[in-house]
């Protein structure tokens, strides 16, 4: 059954939770989103109750093809609620429906946040009126707020006990992915061997976003509007998020702007350090940048496999597979810069 046919049930659900006598869904249209979830923008009118008035909401539910590694909608709702309570800029989560009676599948509603997320626009468009230096600092501060959440949040029990050694766990996971793909990729195999030799225990374990990068936050005329895409969040090494954010593969071509293609790495780190009270070790960030390229290079192969296995034929997935080579090359360059071997020396 389509969402359109479910609208009366959805309106009743909203009215009940907003403590209104009724809810009118004036407008409803799909938002372009990822392959993992389906997002709808709803314009809702509430005649009475504490929230009387007009509201722009986003409904988030599962798309037909789910990625097993990502969180369920109920889990994502809990993450958003925790982040929102902690003062992180996120769309305010409103109500969760786990009962399939309403839509036939679980979903939640959050407030709609307007803004631009597209990486190319944020990084390069000279006509886009943002103060990029200010945005860089805001991104550092916001990440510090996420990392202030330690593994004692009762609402986040589903994340499981934190790993004592996230880097080691990742390496094992990535080797498993490569084996499942059945592809012989010596550069990735070498990257994994190198990170295994250079890994370290984390300085601390915090909530980590795991996909904190340009493209996954919304910017409006006032600056940073919301951090999006919490579906991979979990306990981890906070330096991992910093490395992912700064990795060259997420600079959308603005390679000199090392903080997400938006600004200077030093501005980002200074704002982060000031907000978190923690000094960041640049070597550890480098390590996680190598990990970032490894992770993305392997995910790119997995995306291509979804196409090649005829599970989901798609030009976009097929082309993503071809990105893996340049990610591997960048990973090799990073390793060489971080750990140079001089010729003729042992």
């Amino acid at each position: 059954m389509s969402l359109a046919e479910r609208l009366p049930a959805l309106a009743r659900f909203i009215a009940e939770h907003a403590q209104a006598t009724q809810a009118r869904i004036v407008h409803c249209q799909p938002l372009t989103g990822g392959a993992i979830q389906e997002n709808w923008v709803l314009e809702v009118e509430l005649p009475d109750g504490p929230l009387a008035g007009q509201h722009a909401l986003v409904l988030r539910t599962d798309a037909p093809s789910r990625v097993a590694a990502s969180h369920s909608r109920a889990e994502e709702f809990a993450l958003l609620r925790t982040a929102h309570k902690a003062g992180v800029a996120v769309p305010e989560p409103l109500w969760l429906a786990t009962d399939p009676a309403v839509l036939g599948k679980p979903f939640f509603l959050m407030r709609h946040v307007a803004g631009v997320a597209a990486g190319h626009k944020l990084v390069k468009d000279p006509g886009f009126p943002i103060d990029r230096a200010w945005l860089t600092q805001r991104l550092g501060q916001e990440l510090a707020k996420i990392h202030a959440l330690s593994p004692s949040q009762p609402d986040l029990d589903f994340l499981g006990p934190p790993s004592r050694h996230p880097a080691r766990e990742r390496i094992t996971e990535y080797r498993g992915y490569l084996d499942a793909l059945g592809a012989a990729r010596p550069a990735l195999e070498y990257g994994l061997a190198w990170v295994e030799r250079h890994m370290h225990e984390p300085v601390l374990i915090t909530l980590t976003h795991q996909d904190y990068r340009t493209g996954n936050y919304l910017v409006d005329e006032n600056g940073l509007a919301a951090i999006l895409d919490w579906e991979f969040a979990g306990w981890g090494d906070p330096d991992c998020d910093i490395g992912w954010f700064c990795a060259r593969c997420w600079r959308f071509g603005a390679v000199d702007q090392e903080a997400g293609g938006i600004g200077a790495r030093s501005d980002f780190l200074k704002a982060y350090e000031k907000a978190s009270g923690r000094t960041v070790d640049p070597d550890r960030v480098r390590f996680w940048e190598v990990m970032a390229h490894l992770r993305w290079a392997i995910i790119a192969l997995q995306q291509a496999e979804r196409h090649s296995s005829a599970q989901e034929p798609s030009l976009e997935l097929a082309l993503t597979g071809r990105i893996s080579d340049e990610l591997q090359l960048e990973m090799l360059r990073l390793i060489e810069t971080t750990d140079p071997i001089e010729s003729g020396k042992e």
Partner: peptide
């Protein structure tokens, strides 16, 4: 390939072969 000499030979090989693939893909 964990001695530095072997590691260097390995890195040289990997960089060459991956760069040749990148010349095709991008």
């Amino acid at each position: 390939f964990s001695s530095r000499v072997d590691e260097k030979r390995l890195r040289d090989h990997l960089r060459r072969s991956v760069a040749a693939r990148v010349a095709i893909s991008n």
